[in-house]
Amino acid sequence: MKSIIFQFITVIVFLSCNKNLKVDNSNENFRSESNDIEILDSTNIALHYKTKKFEVAIFPKEYKDFLPEKRFTPTKSEIEKAELALETKLKNINKEQINQSSSPIIDKNLHKYRRQYFGCIDDNGKKYLLINCFWSDRENSKGWLNGMIMVLDGGSYYWEIEYYIENDELKNLSINGYA
């Protein structure tokens, strides 16, 4: 009897210590390519999706803090389209470089930002991704897989933009100001 209890406790301890679980690759929304890392940690709200080009958190539709009421969970494919748009179209929408005189120019440093993705639906029924961006080595980026990073001031270390999926369009770039 003691042996069975010991084995049971050993299995429970082993399973509880393994926090990083790989996402089931049979799920079309989160199918991994060879260089991608997908980690679903049972203590986090968001899915952590990292490639050689970007590191993002994908928040489920159930996450609602400071977001529109109509929501959806973004797919990996939608994230990749948005990332391509950031890579190819951000420079044009950022041509005025607002709030970037004494902090990084966002389109030249895109690889240094972590991003949080939230799926939203506007009043016209159009799906868009709210992309919340922050400098990856900033102190207040802890907990980025559990809630939206919101900072007052900070210049271009913190910014957000909307990506309209159907039109493949970036809109409403908002860069934090300075204190």
Rank of each mutant, 00 (worst) to 15 (best):
T75D: 01
N29W: 08
I9S: 12
Y49K: 02
G154N: 00
H48R: 14
F134P: 00
I106C: 05
K91F: 12
I106S: 07
N27L: 15
G143Q: 08
K53S: 01
G147A: 10
N92A: 10
K81L: 10
N146F: 08
P60H: 01
K126I: 10
I58Q: 04
F134W: 03
K112M: 14
M150F: 14
L67P: 06
L15Q: 15
K171Q: 06
C17I: 14
C17Q: 15
L21S: 08
F118M: 03
D24H: 07
S174I: 14
L152P: 14
K89W: 00
S141T: 14
K76Y: 10
N35V: 06
A85S: 07
I131T: 04
D36Q: 08
E160D: 09
T88G: 00
E162S: 13
K70E: 15
K70F: 12
L173F: 00
S77E: 04
I106T: 06
K142P: 14
T10N: 15
I98K: 12
L129F: 05
D24N: 06
E78M: 06
D65I: 08
A85R: 06
S3V: 09
L173H: 01
S16Y: 11
N167D: 13
F134C: 00
K52N: 11
E78N: 07
L130F: 06
N146E: 05
N29K: 11
Y157L: 02
